[in-house]
Design a protein around this nucleic acid. Sequence first.
DNA 1: CTCGATCCCTGGACGC
DNA 2: TGCGTCCAGGGATCGA
Length: 306
Amino acid sequence: MPELPEVETVARGLRQAILGRRIVSVTLGKTDFIDDPSALEQHLPGRQIEAVERYGKFMLLRLSAVHGEARPATNGNAMPASLLVHLGMTGQIAPAPAVQPLEKHTHVCLLLDDGRELRYTDARRFGRIAYLTKALLAEELTGFGADPLEVSKEEFAGRICGRRARIKALLLDQSVLRGVGNIYADESLWRAKIHPARLGVNLNKKQVETMRRMLQDILQKAIVLRGSSISDFLDAEGQPGEYQRHHRAYGREGKSCYRCKTSIRRAIVAGRSSYFCPRCQPSPRGFAALPLPQRGKKITQRRRER
DNA sequence: CTCGATCCCTGGACGC
DNA sequence: TGCGTCCAGGGATCGA
């Protein structure tokens, strides 16, 4: 669930909290989501966290070179490096006093030089952590698409127009745009009044540009509100975001459209639940929404809104 | 090139 | 109360 705004929020929090700290030691729990667990234990201690960056849905902790002791500098392992962190669905990363009891599903603890630990918890372990040298990082980041916040009108059009894939699939494709996930795809499609199942090739220039502007506007507003907390997203200070209060489509099946009062419907597009207004966002020929679930379902969520 | 299906994983919602 | 089932979904992978 963490998408661009949530990851940006976490990265900003981390920047405030741990910049300049040195990693003293590494403790690992389950490691099946870590590229090379022993590389963390071997190469993180002694390095300083010099920067925290976001790249799409990834966070990059930039690490200093290892200095001091003469170390065999094989494979550039004493050189500056990065810790790549993807939060997957349920990943959380935040500093805590080392004496504080561990949350359930804590799988990585980086002891810092100020007595705190940078802790990574992830119930579902859909996240990813990797220690990467400069060369490996460069390789890792090739093939990603444009930053949706920065992408120009021309480049965006170039990446959408002419494609035979559904617009929803294109928005979710990290090699087209980096950082957009299910929530912000649906929200921006609703704002742009475009059905998620429309094909890129069938959208006109004006629609594609509207799509880009709505996407950028929504992402910016979501960052200001520190992202959306649907189930369990918390930022680096352990605070939930507020943007879920502004959702107009995502998760609103059966509720009325904020523009026209028609019931929001759901369909599976690009393998994901997609929420849209059947009136504001007319579907392509022959594309049917899922039947509305009978009353009695999702009482809790229905009541919780606003 | 694009598609859908499948897997990974756990907690929470739901039905009986 | 408790148990089984389904769903959430980013990303990798595979076959069509």
